[in-house]
Design a binder for these strands. Sequence first.
DNA 1: GTAAACCCTGAGGTTGGCTTGAGAGTCACC
DNA 2: GGTGACTCTCAAGCCAACCTCAGGGTTTAC
Lengths: 146, 146
Amino acid sequence: MKKLLKIGELAKQAHVTVATIRYYESLHLLEPMSKAENGYRYYDDEAVTRLLFIKQAQTLQFSLAEIQQVFDVRKQGEPVCTLVKTLIDCKIAALEQEIQQATARKTMLETYRTSWAARPLDNPSDVKVCSLIEEVRLTLNRLEAI
Amino acid sequence: MKKLLKIGELAKQAHVTVATIRYYESLHLLEPMSKAENGYRYYDDEAVTRLLFIKQAQTLQFSLAEIQQVFDVRKQGEPVCTLVKTLIDCKIAALEQEIQQATARKTMLETYRTSWAARPLDNPSDVKVCSLIEEVRLTLNRLEAI
DNA sequence: GTAAACCCTGAGGTTGGCTTGAGAGTCACC
DNA sequence: GGTGACTCTCAAGCCAACCTCAGGGTTTAC
């Protein structure tokens, strides 16, 4: 039996803060293996694994609620594969949309920037509002019409 | 001189809620042209333009704080072009990064999904944790090493 | 004249994933 | 035995961009 970790040691090993660990506990994402009489939490090595998994799942866009869901299913002794696969499919679809939208926005901004490159600065006394702002409005109106 | 708009009319024309308009006012993004004795706000047509601009700038990823910044500079009688251009450049760079990251995550998820396609469901009594979860961990570790 | 539809202020709630703070107990080392 | 590093609980704060509610006053249409 390996040495149990105190919360600070666990935090260090998993590269999170102790507050985060306690926060996860409040969400029932990670329970200490045991709690001493003085209230100190003690963790085994699996806690490190679990924390790393959480962090990794987060980089895959899993919310804590979804991670919780996965853990719950697993806790019931059922295979989580189906759930995880479904979640992954959703994530991929969501990412696809996100990428498309971001790309569209980027294209918009670039078009916009290009159309300005040759233009001199507004003369403040000349314009009611910045001509670039006006241009944004027009550009956007045109884009919205598409 | 055109007819002034009450907040509800402005809201309808600009396709926002009255609560949003009041919220923007609290951020000094949009002030009513005048305020009657009964406290009613009255707006001119420029308010519609301004609200539309805000919404459009938002679709370009401008935060309300940034929009505020643009308005502030303009209020001082200076051309906002330089600021707007700078902001746009930042947005483009940020979007680029966002797209890259999203694409990387999507690729990761797809690789992951593919590698599972042929795999049978875990037998619950067989595995300590879901093998897919383990796979995630390993996949991620590999990817992180890149 | 009355009822519906509008307007006001001010405070609080929402979402997610934490972080910070107060106030106090515990432990490890010298 | 003291002091500094650690731990505890509970509560509140943070970010952004709003939304909702309570408890009023006002206007407008019939």
